[in-house]
Amino acid sequence: MRKSWWKILTVILLIYTFTVGLLIKIPDLPALEQTARNLFYHVGMWAAMMTLFTVSVVNSIRYLRTLDLKYDIYAREYATVGLVFGILGYATGAIWMSYTWADPNNPLFESFSAVAREPKLIGTAVAMLIYFAYMVLRNSISDMDKRARISAVYNIFAYAMLFPTIWIVPRLLPSLHPGQDGNPALNFKDVSPEMRMVEYPAFIAWALLGVWITTVKIRLSILKERKLAQ
């Protein structure tokens, strides 16, 4: 019981997200209407993804400091589950997009290229590609210690390169392209205080859920390693 308090917290926060998130009054924005509630669900996926990738990098650093293969398993599993949340983020984003951004008179495929150019989407696409590349790199090396070391190095390097991308580029591009940042859906600065009351707990809930799933996977992999070692 002592160790599982955060799992209880996860469940409580998730219930809060799903009930209060659907019940609170939200400001009525023209194109968004009620879909603004997706902030708690769709954007929560990205919050969870970024958290999981961050934890993965922390474990890669721990691996390089201790050379304990346990941390390599941690790093791998956090990256995998982060990718799962990223894919869910894309799937939900596609649904949301096709009923808000995409013009009903315009087929989705034609408006897709305009949508894909959004700086925020570039950031997440890069993040996903980096971790797919991380998986490719892992699979290309057969020696276990070597794989752990090289992939940890790549993980740290890529993450360090990714961070400026996600934080700076979206802030920079609109200033280079004035007049093109008129998209209400991506302008989360005008989130109302009531929505913030749900937004932050929701993000924490999704991130914790991701961590929970990952710990289960880690326990499974460690068991498997032990079984193979016998």
Binding site: E33, Q34, R37, N38, Y41, M45, I95, W96, I213
Partner: peptide, 22 residues
């Protein structure tokens, strides 16, 4: 359907997708 009731069904679809995925 998706555009009715203030497009609330979009939120439903998103939630179902997440649930299915998980």
């Amino acid at each position: 359907l998706m555009r009715s009731n203030g497009r609330i069904y979009v939120v439903v679809a998103v939630m179902v997708t997440i649930l299915l995925g998980l």
